[in-house]
Design a protein around this nucleic acid. Structure first.
Lengths: 139, 139
DNA sequence: TGAATACTTGACTATTTTAGTCGGGTATAT
DNA sequence: ATATACCCGACTAAAATAGTCAAGTATTCA
């Protein structure tokens, strides 16, 4: 059970951004340097964050990305969702007719995994970007 | 963030076993058939469960595996540990001097991941094998 | 005693996922 | 104009995962 770098980097980058005055575009190049994340990888990540309405982009010289909302209103769950980073505990679909439906022999433990999924999602649901960015002084 | 099949199967198999009278050896072959898990894969899994004192083996005809303790006293966290299935949220070591130490630029979000790890482990720590095996009627 | 059952163990392999790169764009400020 | 910085799909290397194989050993029962 491992967190992937994409969502981890996304949170790091957004936390980094949230240290700067809002509406002040932060370039991926700068984030890349400060957080030691490959620029090209960051581009991939921010594309998704943009599509999911978490950031908006400002093109051209002195451009960059800007948080679309106040860090207080950005839940970590949104960030994870943006990167298709679901908490997947089981292979079988929840409501599929054949195979596992939570009652069959195969998935005696299905309920448990569902419960775990909800439990973990709950963690992210209750954390805001502001919860992390404001606690530390330096970047 | 995905659970691997090894630990999932381990829990399924143990839940299956715990339906039968204790001290009654359950063969992997039977578990394999009931739960549709490859026998050879189960063997691999049970070797680890045995090494970690969760089950004991009975060789020979009518042999199989037996739970070493009452399902009420087997925490899911033990099962996961037995399969080296740690909840890993970050790559960097917790106390390494160079690189990330929770305060450096790189790991602005380190505390968050630690918190998540503890949170998830807590789930498994508070679940017993008996919590799942007894709730369902059939196997 | 020997055949069948069932555990034991390490090594091996195919598949999938992950992490990250590459190349060729487009928009905008100065 | 030109440098900066976002845009986007396709690609690839490496690692992890899932599962198999081969060659055992121990025990029971006929």
């Amino acid at each position: 059970m491992k967190l992937n770098t994409k969502s981890r980097y996304a949170v790091m980058a957004l936390a980094d951004m949230s240290k700067f005055p809002i509406n002040n575009p932060v370039s991926l190049r700068d984030i890349s340097l400060r957080q030691s994340i490959s620029l090209l990888y960051l581009e991939q990540i921010f594309l998704k964050l943009k599509k999911n309405d978490i950031v908006k982009s400002v093109r051209g010289t002195n451009g960059g990305y800007v948080l679309k909302r106040d860090p207080k209103n950005i839940k970590l769950s949104e960030i994870f969702q943006a990167l298709d980073q679901k908490v997947k505990t089981v292979g079988c679909k929840k409501d599929s007719k054949k195979g596992c439906n939570g009652k069959s022999a195969k998935c005696i433990t299905h309920e448990l995994w569902d419960e775990l999924e909800i439990y973990i999602n709950n963690f992210f649901e209750n954390k805001k970007l502001s919860d992390l960015s404001l606690t530390k002084g330096d970047i």
